[in-house]
């Protein structure tokens, strides 16, 4: 068990650094940061001065190692746009995004899992069809459009929730719903197929032949097996919530990391974009590691090889 977790942990670290390298290369090869800082109309001399000042004239590997060395000490460089340390920019805004991501995940769980389970237990019933309809529609609705519809609806027709800003919990209700709904199809479908598969397993037949039925059968024999794949998909979805916050935060004017990301991209602020990509990747990797550990704790086939 401990060995398994350590292996997974090493792999996670390796992934995190690969991702940082990929992001660094993509951003720095595809663009000329010096030009970006100086602006479109800057003269060649100005660009060269900036290049020298920010150390952008050094070869890529050196710059990557320099950046990585800083990262290990918690220094992600200075923002070209805000002229502040990137780490402090991110720290200032991380709370809003955490609140948004976790409340969105809560929305996903509350809608998707009960719906998926009900559909699985009554295949081809009206509830199954309803659940399928919800999944297919939620998958097809552009997230930003859903957000705008909510704003139009709640600002004009029924103004019970505020549609802009992040000062109270009520501000997070609509954004969390919009962001959470995007994960409903995946989680619901997996809950449904997972539970259907488990209910058709041979060991469920065994349990029924011992006289278990209904809720007892579900609780004693099905849930633990069915929950395994759901844990993994929830981890993936939570990781994606951070990336998805770009759209939601910009629509609902929440001052979190997503909005910071959009602003820094439009401002060609490479250090900030780089750190955000790295932070989001770390969150994703950490969530998956957590899911692996949870799965190992639940499933003896992983725990005791």
């Amino acid at each position: 068990m401990l060995r398994y977790i350590m292996l997974r942990g090493c792999l996670a670290i390796l992934v995190a650094f690969t991702v940082s390298l990929a992001a660094f290369l993509l951003l720095n090869v595809a663009s000329d940061p010096a030009q970006a800082i100086a602006g479109e109309d800057a003269t060649a001399e100005v660009v060269e001065t900036i290049r020298a000042r920010y150390g952008l004239d050094r070869p890529l590997p050196v710059r990557y190692l320099d950046w990585l060395g800083g990262v290990v000490q918690g220094d992600f460089g200075e923002s070209y746009y805000w002229h502040k340390p990137v780490a402090s920019l991110v720290a200032d805004r991380v709370d809003e995004t955490l609140t948004l991501a976790f409340s969105a995940l809560a929305v996903t769980i509350l809608i998707a899992i009960p719906l998926g389970a009900l559909a699985a237990l009554n295949p081809n019933s009206w509830i199954d069809r309803f659940a399928l309809g919800v999944a297919v529609s939620a998958q097809a609705i552009p997230n930003f459009w859903l957000g705008l519809l909510m704003i139009i609806f709640f600002a004009v027709t029924i103004p019970i929730f505020p549609v802009s800003g992040d000062s109270t919990w009520r501000h997070f209700v609509l954004p969390a719903f919009v962001l959470g709904s995007s994960s409903v199809p995946a989680v619901m479908r997996l809950t449904r197929t997972g539970l259907i598969e488990v209910m058709g397993a041979d060991y469920i037949r065994t349990a029924r032949s011992k006289g278990f039925r209904g809720w007892q059968l579900l609780r004693r024999h099905a849930l633990r097996n069915a929950i395994l794949p759901v844990i993994s998909v929830l981890a993936v979805q939570l990781g994606q919530k951070f990336g998805g916050s770009v759209i939601t935060e910009s629509i609902f004017a929440i001052n979190g990391l997503g909005r910071l990301a959009l602003e820094s991209i439009l401002g060609a602020d490479i250090p900030t974009v780089q750190m955000l990509i790295f932070v989001f990747a770390i969150v994703f990797v950490a969530m998956n590691l957590l899911a692996d550990i949870l799965n190992a704790a639940i499933d003896p086939r992983i725990r005791i090889g």
């Binding site: 992934v15 992001a23 595809a30 994606q240 990509i277």
Partner: peptide
């Protein structure tokens, strides 16, 4: 491994940055 790395990358964010650049 490549798959894990790709999944870890925030796709929309990266796409925005790359298209912009």
């Amino acid at each position: 491994f490549l798959l894990t790395a790709q999944l870890a990358l925030p796709g929309l964010l990266l796409a925005m940055a790359l298209v912009f650049i």
